[in-house]
Design a protein around this nucleic acid. Sequence first.
DNA 1: GTAGGGTTAG
Length: 828
Amino acid sequence: MEKISAFGEHLKIGGAEVGRKMSAGMSSMSFTMNPCDIRAVPNFYAAQLQLCCPHTPTSYPQARRVHAHMITSGFKPRGHILNRLIDIYCKSSNLVYAHHLFDRIPEPDVVARTTMLAAYSNSSKPNMALEIFNTTPFSIRDTVLYNAMITAHCHNDDGHAAVKLFREMRRDDFTPDNFTFTSVLSALALIADRETHCQQLHCAIVKSGTGLVTSVVNALISAYVKCGSSPLVCSSSLMGAARKLFDEMPVRDELTWTTIITGYVRNGDLDTARRVFEGMDEKLVVAWNAMISGYVHDGYVSEALEMFRMMNLSGVKLDEFTYTSVLSACASARLFLLGKQVHAYMLRTEENLSRDFLLSVNNALISLYWKCGKIDEAHMIFSNMPVRDLVSWNAILSTYVNVGRINEALSFFNEMPERNLLTWTVMIAGMAQNGFGEEGLKLFNQMKSKGLKPCDYAFAGAISSCAVLAALEHGRQLHAQLVQLGFDSSLSAGNALTTMYARCGVVEAAHCLFLTMPFVDSVSWNAMIAALGQHGHGAQALKLFEQMLEEDILPDRITFLTILSACSHAGLVNQGCSYFDAMYGSYGIRPDEDHYARLIDLLCRAGKFSEAQDAIQRMPFEPGVPIWEALLGGCRIHGNVDLGVEAADRLFELRPQHDGTYILLSNMFANVGRWDDVAKVRKLMRDRGVKKEPGCSWVEVENKVNVFLVDDTSHPEIQAVYNYLEELGLKMRKLGYVPDTKYALHDVESDQKEIGLSTHSEKLAVAFGLLKLPHGATVRVFKNLRICGDCHNAFKYMSKVVERDIVVRDGKRFHHFRNGECSCGNYW
DNA sequence: GTAGGGTTAG
């Protein structure tokens, strides 16, 4: 035997000298063999490859050196040596190279096939994995191959396929082993009707004799836990089954403990999770992390931070999961300084932070910064990141979406190297929140055409888009799809549907939905209270609010905004004022400018101008646009010209290009017959180049949206509409309707007063709806601007003449006209 | 050759 320390000098195989051709890198190798014995060669290579430890950074260069040696020496690897090479290439992410080798094997054995299959599955290439499986002759298949394919289906999020394959392998007499059970159990998390499967698998495991194997019981516990977090089953009994397994298993390992703890965390039982955690002898990082993230997820920020402190004291090494959870806790509690301290502590104490460590921490930092209102700083972190992943992109996208900087968000969206379901969902919801309903629906369809299956959040975004557009039929269709897909118990979708039905004018449907939702949160309550308020059911809105308090749901700033609006719409001044006082007094929520604006609105509508002015004086900040707008609106209703002019002046300073102020001011002058001032306002508007947003109304008929503008002549059936309006006008006048010409000025550009009135867009849309919708059906019309006073009056008469309900949503609120009355009680 | 726990983006 000859000791060889460098290839270059000595190695000869089969008489061929190969050493000089080897790369310099080979000189680091050292091994012993008999160069004359040709039979030893495969063993020599096998031993060399055995030294390459997969998943380590050196395995790939080592394997390449050995491989290069084979090539130059003319050795053709086969069997287990080839399989080993393929395996190392796969595990060091050199899939192309591995495939190249695999492809040249005339009849690859089941081991080579399994290796390649798993590699494709791990690299998100499910079709390639499936192809390998399907082309494997039945005669050489074995349990391991099936196990790998079941796992591949799991990686592809196809739980049903995994379960189906499990059934097939049993039918074909392959015996499931530990790996089979752990894999198929993890597939259950992906399917909806998992509970039965879980119990059946439990039986099969007991029968198979693997029921006491720790890894199998761990997977079974995990499966029961995941069944329990499905909203439609009784979680306590399933958690009970999981706990029984935990208590009775002979040997527990690290995974067992963390599985049961995360089980309790996921099922919202943090107290039990904590007790089990306390029972652990040696508390592992993963268990600490599970507890911290559980507390963060359920909003127990101080407990999460306390856990973090204790963990740090216990001497366990903190990892990126710990830091990201803690930073997320700081973000959700808006504890900006603490978050920065945690970050600083990490930089001070942790050494040699890996790429992945920094990546996930930076991702968490982006959301800490934006949630604490520091948008530019969040962007700075994003820009300075040496590597970004999808999470980073989604975080920065959410940043801009959430502050309503939709154009910037859109450019991030377009720039992103890859997108996932969450990306689309954020963008769709962002469009809807910012009033771009059409764009929201367009993105929703685009997402589907890319083959992505929308989740309930994505549906919620699309449904909100329908709410913006008042596209009731479209919204109903999405609702039907939700039910078909089994998302009908989803909280986010339910909340979106409540709002959609309300904003499309069907407050009854909104209420019905709210009452049948299996789970509700404060958003649901807020949505329903807002729905009732917008539709003029002030008393019902307040009743629902009281009910919310009785059920121990804490009101938030949004709740009070909706309550104050409801009081304002229904003229409930005293109640509104006392709720305003209770906000801080009883619930510790400081009123912000929007709350004050609603208070001013409430007071002004009731003509209490001195109280309104007092409130403005008392505000702890300078009044801005919402305050002056509310004041001007109230002044218009009550003809308080002096105060109105003052408010308008402030608005001209703050927002000179906004048309609404000019229109309100001009209407106010018109109301009191100050025509010279009306003319002055119109001149001012012209001089400043301010254009009035054209009035536009629409009505949905047979799933088609029909849009009407002022003096419309473009709609194909417009002549019939004009004729019908004339016919209605005669009947209305008989009942006492007199057109109010001063509202003609609502449309500043129209000089033909009475004619102008009869052709307001809302009148055209209502008439069209009455003509086209089935007899007796409620007509629902939507207008971009506030409804005109004369139209408001006319619709009251119209509802009596035609004996039908007419619902109009204008820029501010809903009006339900029935039998000569309007639900708004003439506040609008 | 195959499996199983914790994180950051709504």
